[in-house]
Computed example of a mutant assay.
Amino acid sequence: MHKLLARAVTMLMALAFSQTLHAAEVGDDGLHKEAWFTITFRDIADDIAQAKAEGKRLALTFEQRGCIYCAQMHEKILSDPEVRDYIAANFMVVQYNMFGDEEVTDLDGETLTEKTAARRWGYVFTPTIVFLPEEAPEGKTVAEAAVATMPGAFGKWTFLNMFRWVREKGYERDEHFQQYHARIINELRAEGRLGDEE
């Protein structure tokens, strides 16, 4: 009995240590920082080209200091190895502060700050994740060019499936994201892989 208890404690400690290794740090701006997020000059056209050169897609995440849903996204969703590893392998994620002053160059060449970009593009919720096309279109804003937008916090499978749907270019097909998501959920249920994190 003591060996079983000692083994359980050891496993729990290892799990806690593993989760600590992947926990996002909070920066001076109050935003959670993932080690695999990309820091750029926030020139959207250049970022799209860089992502493509790396075989990835560009995703922008808008967050703000004190956002409990942003914290939940980092602590519960992005800390999950299945989610984190898929996104890091397939997307270049650039973090934006909803009320930040860093300079941003929109696709149409207009120079903004993070906060004026969020206002111009109509993003009012945090977190909001914006998915950009593989090629930078000329004369459009980010909001006009985005192939998908995910406003708010969701559970693991909705979150991960949106990234998969974009990577698989579901927006170019007839299967709406909600249909795609329902199909994947049914497949996961059939495999017995679905917990309460739907």
Rank of each mutant, 00 (worst) to 15 (best):
residue 109 G to I: 09
residue 131 F to M: 06
residue 187 E to N: 07
residue 112 L to M: 15
residue 186 N to I: 14
residue 125 F to M: 15
residue 97 N to E: 12
residue 185 I to F: 02
residue 118 A to D: 02
residue 89 A to H: 05
residue 79 S to L: 15
residue 126 T to D: 03
residue 178 Q to D: 12
residue 64 Q to F: 13
residue 101 D to Y: 12
residue 139 G to M: 02
residue 112 L to N: 00
residue 159 F to G: 01
residue 112 L to Y: 02
residue 90 N to E: 01
residue 168 E to S: 00
residue 97 N to L: 11
residue 70 C to H: 03
residue 171 Y to A: 05
residue 148 A to P: 02
residue 169 K to T: 14
residue 71 A to I: 10
residue 180 Y to D: 10
residue 74 H to V: 11
residue 149 T to K: 10
residue 128 T to Q: 02
residue 93 V to P: 01
residue 162 M to R: 14
residue 128 T to S: 13
residue 134 E to S: 13
residue 133 P to T: 09
residue 121 W to S: 11
residue 102 E to G: 06
residue 119 R to M: 14
residue 172 E to Q: 15
residue 170 G to S: 07
residue 66 G to C: 11
residue 78 L to S: 05
residue 71 A to Q: 11
residue 97 N to W: 07
residue 125 F to Q: 15
residue 82 E to I: 14
residue 157 W to H: 12
residue 181 H to G: 09
residue 162 M to D: 05
residue 187 E to H: 13
residue 79 S to T: 15
residue 152 G to C: 09
residue 87 I to F: 01
residue 158 T to Q: 13
residue 159 F to Y: 13
residue 114 E to C: 00
residue 144 E to Y: 04
residue 162 M to T: 05
residue 64 Q to T: 07
residue 161 N to S: 10
residue 127 P to A: 10
residue 126 T to I: 12
residue 134 E to N: 13
residue 121 W to F: 13
residue 120 R to N: 03
residue 82 E to Y: 10
residue 88 A to R: 09
residue 160 L to Y: 07
residue 154 F to K: 07
residue 161 N to H: 13
residue 75 E to D: 14
residue 152 G to A: 06
residue 108 D to T: 13
residue 155 G to H: 00
residue 157 W to F: 13
residue 167 R to C: 03
residue 105 T to M: 11
residue 75 E to F: 12
residue 157 W to Q: 09
residue 106 D to K: 02
residue 129 I to P: 06
residue 122 G to H: 08
residue 136 A to H: 03
residue 125 F to N: 15
residue 133 P to H: 07
residue 114 E to W: 09
residue 148 A to D: 11
residue 111 T to A: 12
residue 127 P to C: 02
residue 68 I to E: 12
residue 178 Q to C: 01
residue 139 G to H: 02
residue 78 L to W: 07
residue 130 V to K: 03
residue 67 C to R: 03
residue 115 K to T: 14
residue 104 V to N: 01
residue 88 A to K: 10
residue 121 W to K: 01
residue 107 L to E: 05
residue 171 Y to Q: 09
residue 75 E to I: 13
residue 106 D to W: 03
residue 146 A to V: 11
residue 135 E to H: 10
residue 95 Q to Y: 09
residue 159 F to Q: 02
residue 184 I to L: 02
residue 81 P to F: 05
residue 119 R to S: 14
residue 135 E to S: 11
residue 104 V to F: 05
residue 152 G to I: 07
residue 101 D to S: 11
residue 102 E to L: 15
residue 69 Y to S: 11
residue 77 I to K: 02
residue 184 I to P: 00
residue 170 G to R: 00
residue 125 F to K: 15
residue 146 A to M: 11
residue 120 R to E: 02
residue 141 T to L: 02
residue 130 V to F: 05
residue 124 V to G: 13
residue 146 A to E: 04
residue 126 T to W: 08
residue 123 Y to I: 08
residue 104 V to P: 00
residue 153 A to D: 12
residue 109 G to P: 08
residue 127 P to E: 06
residue 167 R to G: 06
residue 99 F to Q: 05
residue 101 D to F: 07
residue 157 W to D: 10
residue 163 F to D: 08
residue 145 A to D: 08
residue 148 A to V: 03
residue 84 R to N: 04
residue 166 V to D: 10
residue 131 F to P: 01
residue 163 F to T: 00
residue 101 D to N: 06
residue 153 A to P: 13
residue 137 P to S: 01
residue 183 R to T: 14
residue 115 K to G: 08
residue 137 P to T: 04
residue 111 T to V: 15
residue 87 I to E: 00
residue 155 G to K: 04
residue 70 C to W: 08
residue 66 G to W: 00
